[in-house]
């Protein structure tokens, strides 16, 4: 066994992020507050898949998703000292993701470019190509429908429908009241359904 054969020190791929408890994340946060770089790396390994998936749905972007992930963790590192444990850390993390996504969406919409070119055909890989193709098509449709939503509605809708967060948690994550969240969510659902209906109709007509 040589020194090179030893496991690499940091940022190695990690198992799926599901299963890590809030308590563990909070312990890591305490260590990060004490300037423990390795604790932050561990936190990164535990949460990076969640963060990437959330950013992907929030922005619908894939080509510069790594930039967004990086930006999120840079902001998180700056923001962790201010985390006082008043909410779940997961909520705090989603809030950082939401801010990064909002900034990106606003910037992107100012450019008025077509999103559809940014989503590659071969997005997802899996053992079943047919299922992977279905997933890719569904994701493409969902993201195009999400494009019709305003940025704030989209964040609320994605948090609730794709990330599984409740309205109270979303209210903490986006810094809005519970009623505002319910209102945005309700409106977003109507807009999303309408957009999906139109997209499916267009697809049927074109085929």
């Amino acid at each position: 066994m040589t020194a090179d054969a030893l496991p690499m020190p940091r940022l190695v791929p990690t198992p799926p992020p599901t299963g890590h408890g809030e308590a563990r994340l909070l312990r890591l946060v305490e260590r990060i507050k004490a300037d423990d770089a390795l604790a932050f790396e561990e936190l990164y390994r535990l949460t990076r898949d969640d963060v990437a998936r959330t950013l992907f749905h929030l922005t619908g972007r894939r080509n510069d998703l790594d930039d967004l992930v990086q930006e999120t963790y840079v902001r998180l590192l700056r923001a962790v000292p201010a985390f006082r444990g008043e909410s779940q850390f997961k909520t705090f993390l989603y809030r950082v993701c939401g801010n990064v996504a909002l900034m990106h969406l606003r910037w992107w919409r100012r450019r008025r470019e077509d999103l559809s070119d940014e989503v590659p055909e071969q997005l997802f890989q899996g053992a079943d190509p047919e299922r992977a193709a279905q997933q890719a098509q569904a994701t493409r449709l969902v993201h195009r429908a999400l494009e019709t939503l305003s940025a704030k509605k989209r964040v609320v809708f994605v948090y609730h429908e794709l990330c599984g967060m409740g309205p109270e948690e979303i209210a903490q994550a986006v810094g809005a009241s519970y009623n505002t969240v319910r209102s945005r969510l309700h409106s977003a659902r109507l807009d999303f359904t309408r957009a999906m209906k139109a997209l499916v109709h267009d697809a049927l007509v074109s085929s």
């Binding site: 791929p13 992930v69 990086q70 590192l77 997933q135 890719a136």
Partner: peptide
């Protein structure tokens, strides 16, 4: 269906970039 999908990122590159920034 879309909820189950995950973006395929070049994690090695992303890990390195985030790690360097953290350091």
């Amino acid at each position: 269906t879309a909820r189950l999908s995950a973006p395929s990122l070049d994690w090695a590159q992303t890990d390195a970039r985030v790690g360097a920034l953290v350091e």
